[in-house]
């Protein structure tokens, strides 16, 4: 069965969506990714959608779900590389993905994730101390 590959980069997982996703593939990704977060003890997830030519409400919902599930599993999610035309269309559609962090490219996404995790570590430390 067709699957979207998930790469491990240190503490982070990187998913690059390169195909026009049909609904089943999106659901499989959701399952695979949550499984890998637990298995690899990942603290962050980067979803690179720079190849995606459209994001409809189904894929949008899947991205939102992944972010929420990852948070429950103690990992931050950053969506990177959304194209301008896709962003304009998503906003018009009424889907602004609240609660999902975004970055222009993978490099900036990694920076953002590191920042988030540091912040969380100090916050936790503060509460503990």
């Amino acid at each position: 069965m067709e699957r979207i590959p998930i790469l491990k980069m240190g503490n982070f997982l990187l998913v690059t969506v390169q195909v026009d996703m049909h609904d089943r593939l999106a659901m499989t990704l959701q399952d695979d990714l949550t499984g890998r977060i637990v298995k690899d003890h990942a603290h962050g997830v980067l979803i690179d959608i720079s190849s995606l030519e459209i994001v409809d409400s189904f894929i949008g919902r899947m991205i939102g779900n992944i972010a929420s599930m990852a948070r429950v599993l103690d990992a931050e999610t950053v969506v990177v590389g959304m194209r301008p035309a896709v962003a304009i269309t998503l906003v018009e559609l009424g889907l602004s993905l609240p609660g999902v962090r975004t970055a222009l490219n993978v490099d900036k996404g990694v920076e953002l994730l590191k920042g988030c995790i540091e912040q969380r570590a100090t916050a936790n430390g503060h509460v503990a101390g």
């Binding site: 959304m82 962003a87 998503l90």
Partner: peptide, 12 residues
Amino acid sequence: LKTVAAARLMGA
């Protein structure tokens, strides 16, 4: 507001 929202989706 839509422009701001779209830019945010892209990460800016």
